[in-house]
Design a protein around this nucleic acid. Structure first.
Ligand code: ZN
Ligand code: ZN
Ligand code: ZN
Ligand code: ZN
Lengths: 145, 145
DNA sequence: AATTAAATAAAAATCATTTCTATTTAACAC
DNA sequence: GTGTTAAATAGAAATGATTTTTATTTAATT
């Protein structure tokens, strides 16, 4: 996987730096979305010198290059997620525990058809995200915990 | 329509203030999404005393009450839109001229089915938005204008 | 080893948004 | 209309996540 990352970074003309790889490794281990500050804290256990702006910058570049995906959180802060699933799909995020799960369909085709036929414009990007409570968090809330 | 607004505000236990109605009137006239500062500038032609925090607060309350809808802009700033279309649907926004157009389908049903069957959690909210160029802006860009 | 452009640390700035407090106003009862 | 009360507001100030800046370091290439 480290090799895949290196390859992906090469393709984007991003240098393969230890910190960049560490950010990807941290994200890869997680099934929840993480914010820049959380990632920074984890990085600081491995690097004695690492600035928060470096984390912000790298996350932005990686998202720009579609290696990681940005989460649309209601609190409007930045969160990122590295999805192992390569096929086009969308995400369910748990607002309680931050777990990300795949929604196994992508509506891009239908959307583009609609936009071409009715709006006669061009699609540049689309957001589809479901916010809710995962199985475990929903159960807990039902039980009043 | 002013009466409809008053009724809607009543239902939300929000007082019917001139400024609140003015914000709704401004948004109703527009086919583009507007930011708090743009709305504030328009309001200042009618009210000599009006604070920007009042605009922010009101927009938030109106969005919370589903009278207006929040736009998900890539620049992550706040924008709002008052849609005349009451039926459940989603929006195409033009990143160039800020026009909002309706996408005439809502995928809430399919999403909930997927979440119930596969994720076994609860849907609290969902975002579907298409960002692109409207007919006019797309034409302009094609022509290299 | 030398070269060069990209990446980084650290400090500082930014600026959209929110909070705070004293004052005003809408809604309601009389 | 007058009085009462809770909500709304103005204005000033604070907030804090994110971005910018600049000098230094490092990855990649020769
Ligand atoms: Zn995924
Ligand atoms: Zn959860
Ligand atoms: Zn347009
Ligand atoms: Zn609409």
């Amino acid at each position: 996987m480290r090799n895949n990352f290196s390859l992906a970074l090469k393709k984007l003309n991003l240098k393969i730096t230890p910190k960049r790889l560490a950010i990807l490794e941290i994200l890869m281990k997680e099934s929840v979305f993480l914010g820049p500050e959380e990632i920074w804290k984890k990085l600081r256990t491995r690097f004695k010198k690492i600035g928060l702006p470096t984390v912000y910058r790298n996350l932005e570049e990686l998202a720009e290059g579609n290696i990681i995906s940005k989460i649309n959180h209601p609190n409007r802060q930045l969160y990122y997620y590295l999805c192992p699933n390569q096929s086009p799909h969308h995400h369910f995020i748990c607002l309680s525990c931050h777990k990300v799960e795949d929604i196994n369909f992508c509506i891009l085709k239908e959307l583009e058809e609609e936009v071409i036929n009715n709006i006669r414009g061009k699609v540049l990007s689309h957001i589809l995200q479901i916010n809710g409570l995962c199985k475990e968090c929903f159960k807990e809330r039902k039980n009043g915990l």
